[in-house]
C-alpha cells in the first residue's frame, strides 16, 4: 500500500481498515490479521499498526480478545454508523471542492446525476 507521506501513517492505516470493513472485505466478527502480519503487508512499523488498532479499539470498531487477537465488532449498528461517517466525510470533501468552483447546489446535483447516467451507459 502506498501512503501519503504528509499524513500520519496510523491515521491512513485506520482509514484503510475502515474501508475494508465498510466494503465488507472484513465482515462482522472477522478476525484481523496479526499485528506483525499487518505491518508486513502494509510495509509499516509494528508500533504504527498498534497505534492505529488502539484507536480503533477505543472507538469501538474493533474488539480485542485476550490471547486470540483482534476482531471486527459484531455490532451491525456500529458498522452502519461507520458507513454514514465515511459517507459524510467524502460528501463533505466533494461538496466543498465543487462549491469552491462557485457551483450552486442544483448544479452540483445535476452534475452528479449526469455523471452516474453516463457511467451506467458506459457499463452497458
Amino acid at each position: 500500500m502506498l501512503f501519503d507521506d504528509k499524513v500520519p501513517i496510523y491515521y491512513q492505516i485506520k482509514n484503510y481498515l475502515y474501508h475494508r470493513i465498510v466494503a465488507g472485505d472484513l465482515q462482522l466478527g472477522d478476525k484481523l490479521p496479526a499485528v506483525r502480519q499487518l505491518a508486513v503487508d502494509l510495509t509499516v512499523n509494528v508500533n504504527t499498526v498498534q497505534r492505529a488498532l488502539r484507536e480503533m479499539i477505543a472507538e469501538g470498531y474493533i474488539v480485542p480478545q485476550r490471547g486470540r487477537g483482534n476482531f471486527v465488532t459484531a455490532d451491525a449498528a456500529k458498522i452502519t454508523t461507520l458507513k454514514h461517517e465515511l459517507l459524510r466525510t467524502y460528501s463533505q470533501a466533494f461538496y466543498r471542492q465543487l462549491h469552491a468552483l462557485k457551483l450552486s447546489d442544483t448544479e452540483i446535483l445535476q452534475a452528479i446525476e449526469t455523471y452516474i447516467e453516463k457511467r451506467r451507459d458506459a457499463d452497458d
Binding site: V44, N45, T48
Partner: peptide
C-alpha cells in the same frame, strides 16, 4: 528517505 519513511517512529 522516501522508501523508509513509513517505517520510522
Amino acid at each position: 528517505v522516501s522508501e523508509i519513511a513509513a517505517l520510522l517512529d
